[in-house]
Each structure stands twice: as structure tokens, then as C-alpha cells.
Simulated assay, not measured.
Amino acid sequence: MNSFKFPKKLRLLKSSEFFFIFREPKCIYSLQFNIFGRINKLQHPRIGLTIAKKYVRLAHERNRIKRLIRESFRLNQHKLPFMDFVAVARKRSVDLDNVVLLKKLEKLWQRYCQLS
């Protein structure tokens, strides 16, 4: 049975890990998010988040978006290829409510599954 926990090993924490992805990313874009990914040598996917104040002004909105991205990743981690991902929120992500935002993220994860 799959575990749907979100331990520290599933997170990108160091700037060097982010730079690794941005060197040669496989990109998937939408109006609300850009998700960059790169194959890792681990046996699980990992995620890092980038949400700029320039695009999402209010802290509670940034926190809401981060929470939803993490939740979406946690629920889809067993379907995803063994890649490191960086999710970048864009301006239009603030305008969506939680349900629609989760559906958009679900579609992006599905597109990554089809890539590999």
C-alpha cells in the first residue's frame, strides 16, 4: 500500500538542487503555473516551490498556493516519474479558488506522466 506522507526527503531544500533543475529542465506551462522538471537518480520524486511576491502580493495567498501545490504533489507522488520538480506560480494563480487550482495542478502532473 502506498504511503501518502510528505517527508523532508521529498522536498528540494538547497539552492544547488534548484540550480540542477534550471540547467536543463523539461518544462510544462499553463496560465497559472510553470513546472520545471529534471530526472533524478533517486527512487522518488521531489518538489520545490517558487512563488514571487511580485506576482502574488499577499502572504496568505502565497501560503495558500504553496499548501495546495504540496497537497497536489503529495497525492500524485506515486504516479509521477522519478524527477525533481520546481513549481513556479504565476500571476493568474491568485484568481482561482482551491478546487479549480487543484484541478489545474492535476492536469499538469498528468502531462508530466505522459512525457516520461
Rank of each mutant, 00 (worst) to 15 (best):
N40K: 05
F36Q: 11
L75R: 11
R92H: 15
C27Q: 11
K104F: 14
K26Q: 13
V56L: 05
K91L: 12
L12Y: 06
P7M: 00
Q114R: 15
R38S: 10
C113N: 06
S93P: 03
I21C: 09
K26D: 14
L101K: 11
Q32E: 15
I28N: 07
L105H: 02
K8D: 01
E24Y: 12
I69R: 04
A89C: 06
R111V: 03
I47F: 09
Q32R: 09
Y112R: 03
R64F: 12
I51N: 01
I39N: 08
A59K: 06
K9A: 03
V86W: 04
L68H: 13
L31H: 14
S30A: 11
R70E: 01
E17K: 07
L80F: 10
L101S: 11
A52D: 02
R23G: 09
L102E: 11
K41V: 11
N2C: 01
R74G: 01
L96V: 14
F19K: 11
E71K: 08
Y55D: 05
P7H: 02
A52I: 02
I28W: 03
R67V: 07
K79M: 13
F6W: 07
F18R: 06
C27V: 11
S116F: 12
I51L: 10
L115E: 14
C27W: 06
L115G: 05
R11E: 04
K8H: 01
N40L: 06
S72D: 03
H78F: 09
E24G: 10
H44N: 05
R70I: 13
N98R: 14
F4S: 05
Y112D: 10
S72F: 05
K26S: 14
K103M: 12
F85D: 00
Q77P: 01
Q32F: 13
K54D: 03
L96P: 14
Q77K: 15
P81Y: 06
E17C: 09
H60L: 03
S72G: 08
K8R: 14
F73W: 08
Q77I: 01
D95Y: 08
F4C: 02
V56S: 05
